[in-house]
């Protein structure tokens, strides 16, 4: 497990009372398979939540429901005051406010890095091209790869691609960021650069939900860790308590397995 930067500036990491995401009694099925069962979760603005759990526990599905890449069948999901239902207008609104990073980056290979970053602002937000490019360069500088702007994704390393993916999401000026195992497809050396970028984001007060196995990141950055198994939330707590003093047996077993070596 790569250790992320140790000294974190917590001055901007304030959790407000304003609710960013509210999930009530949410259920999802894939055909007959009950993937998510009665999920209740409230995320306040400024929260940094790490979701962990064994594979197949539904953690990715959970965050993919938040921007409706997966459709839930029962219960409510309210993002930024907008309810996610079959209304496409609501959906577009939510998707423009919620940024997402994927395990396999999903950059567009036929566009340059800069074009990847300006595409959504130009077409969704109708930003003028010059302004979109300026914003894109700003965020590329933030993730420390402005010099790659003219290249294609295929020419970059995995860690660089994931940082571009983060910059691409940020260009939409999202209020919430979702991370779906952003470091799982990376070499150990590259994990750190991506985690550092995510820590920078957290330091600026971004509301984040991360599905990740980076327990070091969870310990340092998260204000809440959620453990899922068999499609339900088994335990959630502050990281300190969660790691030192797991209450449920299932959590203890999971932690002993991933921290055991």
């Amino acid at each position: 497990m790569a250790e992320a930067a140790t000294n974190i500036d917590r001055s901007n990491m304030k959790i407000s009372d304003e609710v960013a995401i509210e999930i009530r009694g949410m259920n999802k099925w894939y055909g007959d398979f009950h993937v998510l069962r009665d999920i209740d979760l409230t995320v306040n603005r400024g929260e940094r939540i790490v979701v962990c759990g064994p594979s197949g526990s539904g953690k990715s599905t959970l965050i993919r429901c938040i921007n409706r890449l997966e459709e839930h069948q029962k219960g409510d999901i309210i993002v930024d005051g907008t309810e996610l239902n079959s209304d496409l207008k609501n959906l577009d609104k939510v998707r423009a406010e919620v940024g997402m990073c994927f395990q396999h980056f999903n950059l567009f290979p036929h566009l340059t890095i800069l074009e990847n970053c300006t595409l959504a602002p130009i077409w969704v937000r109708k930003t003028p091209k010059a302004e979109a490019e300026e914003t894109a360069m700003h965020f590329l500088e933030k993730v420390k790869i402005p010099e790659q702007a003219g290249k294609y994704p295929g020419q970059l390393s995995g860690g660089q691609q994931q940082r571009v993916a983060i910059a691409r999401s940020l260009c939409m000026k999202p209020r919430i960021m979702l991370f779906d195992e952003p470091t799982s497809a990376l070499d150990p050396e590259m994990i750190k650069e991506v985690l550092d970028t995510m820590i920078d984001l957290a330091e600026e007060g971004m509301t984040m939900i991360c599905v990740t196995h980076e327990m070091g990141f969870a310990r340092q950055v998260a204000n809440r860790v959620i453990f899922m198994d068999a499609g339900q939330i088994v335990e959630q707590n502050e990281p300190e308590e969660f790691f030192q003093n797991p209450k449920s047996e299932r959590t203890q077993l999971f932690l002993s397995q991933i921290l055991g070596h």
């Binding site: 890449l69 577009d92 999903n106 036929h110 595409l119």
Partner: peptide, 27 residues
């Protein structure tokens, strides 16, 4: 095309026609 291309386009808020025109069909 990998499913991720559709998901990335969707997640950015592109409409169906935009994602077809800009992402899916060119590739």
């Amino acid at each position: 095309l990998p499913k991720g291309q559709y998901e990335a386009a969707d997640a950015m808020g592109l409409t169906y026609w935009q994602s077809m025109q800009l992402i899916i069909l060119p590739q």
